[in-house]
């Protein structure tokens, strides 16, 4: 019983704290983000299974996590509001070569982040070559190049 409750509590807490920390916080932009994720997983593991190292406990924990995830995705399909709440929304941060400073400040993105994505994804050199830049729900920036 406690494996299910523990896993559910951890799942919901992680959902909340990652959501509140913002889309960009753990989007694996730097090596340190990845290290942070590893450390978090290590801490989480202890709380989920406690000192019961049986296979049953592990199976129950995994089933709870995957079950909650599937359940939530089914619910999200029916309710766009819930989907928005859990997955956030994409935000346009650059339009026709002109960054939108207010939104970028709110999302903690600067021009170099956009240029970074432009180089990596499209091989672009300057902001003016970008038609649209969007911060996706995943925390990644997608780039649509200027035509012609």
């Amino acid at each position: 019983m406690d494996a299910v409750l523990r896993s559910a509590a951890i799942y919901l807490f992680l959902l909340l704290i990652f959501r509140l920390s913002g889309k960009r916080t753990l989007a694996q932009i730097t090596t340190f983000d990845m290290i942070l994720l590893l450390i978090i997983s290590e801490v989480t593991q202890q709380a989920m299974i406690g000192d019961d190292f049986s296979v049953t406990q592990a199976l129950l924990a995994i089933t709870t996590l995957v079950g909650l995830d599937v359940g939530l995705s089914l619910w999200k399909q029916r309710s766009p509001k819930l989907e928005r709440l859990i997955d956030s929304v994409p935000v346009l941060i650059l339009e026709h070569g002109r960054p939108i400073p207010e939104r970028m400040k709110q999302l903690r993105i600067d021009e170099s982040d956009i240029l970074d994505a432009a180089r990596e994804l499209q091989g672009l050199e300057r902001l003016e070559q970008i038609k649209y830049a969007v911060l996706e729900r995943s925390g990644n920036i997608s780039i649509i190049p200027q035509e012609g």
């Binding site: 704290i17 509140l20 913002g22 928005r84 929304v89 994409p90 935000v91 346009l92 709110q106 649209y132």
Partner: peptide
């Protein structure tokens, strides 16, 4: 513009506010 995107700026603003509150709580 030319983008088909489910942008919801009102929600985005509320989200930013919620994040700020969340940080304070943390």
């Amino acid at each position: 513009g030319d983008l088909e995107i489910r942008q919801d700026l009102e929600f985005h603003r509320r989200e930013v506010r919620a994040e700020n509150v969340g940080w304070a709580v943390m």
